[in-house]
Write a protein that binds this DNA or RNA. Structure first.
Lengths: 83, 83
DNA sequence: TCACATTTGTACGTATGTATC
DNA sequence: AGATACATACGTACAAATGTG
């Protein structure tokens, strides 16, 4: 799933993959993204790498992280707790 | 130098300290910031922590990192190599 | 061309703290 | 009290880019 030969670092590949899932509606707004532990198992990378990927999406405003809860796909201007 | 008791995490304290040096002119535009290794010795924190601090300043557009060179205080719209 | 040192970039593993359920 | 989950921090390792000799 992760191409470790190419020039694109894993954390960006994962960010792209997750962004695609969000854009395609596979993970709809307000829904939670798989936890870092689940993503760790899925992509076979360290949590720090996943956190970097999440950080990218966070900077893009696509997701919001809620401590103790998870990572949520943003709706528009509402927080995940409102759903 | 770093207060590990208070609520402000070290990487933010360092970001604040570096931002202050830039704002005060202690490190003028176009100049290089001490390398991560030097900062590591100065602040007594891990490089990962320093990276987070630098990341904050980078997001604020205050500095630019150049692989193999260093971290530079941005001028306005010019690159460090033009100095 | 080549080797080397320096510096940032990326990645992994681990541990602790904090918040939520 | 316990499980889950993100935030922060440390240590380590290797890769990539740059400059020098």
């Amino acid at each position: 799933m992760i191409d470790r030969e190419g020039p694109v670092p894993p954390y960006r590949q994962i960010a792209n993959a997750l962004r695609e899932r969000i854009a395609s509606g596979a993970i709809p707004p307000g829904r939670r993204i798989p936890s870092l532990i689940e993503l760790e198992a899925e992509f076979g990378v360290a949590r720090d790498t996943l956190r970097k990927a999440v950080r990218v999406l966070k900077d893009e405003g696509l997701v919001e992280t809620v401590t103790g809860m998870g990572i949520y796909v943003v709706q528009r201007e509402s927080s995940p707790s409102e759903s």
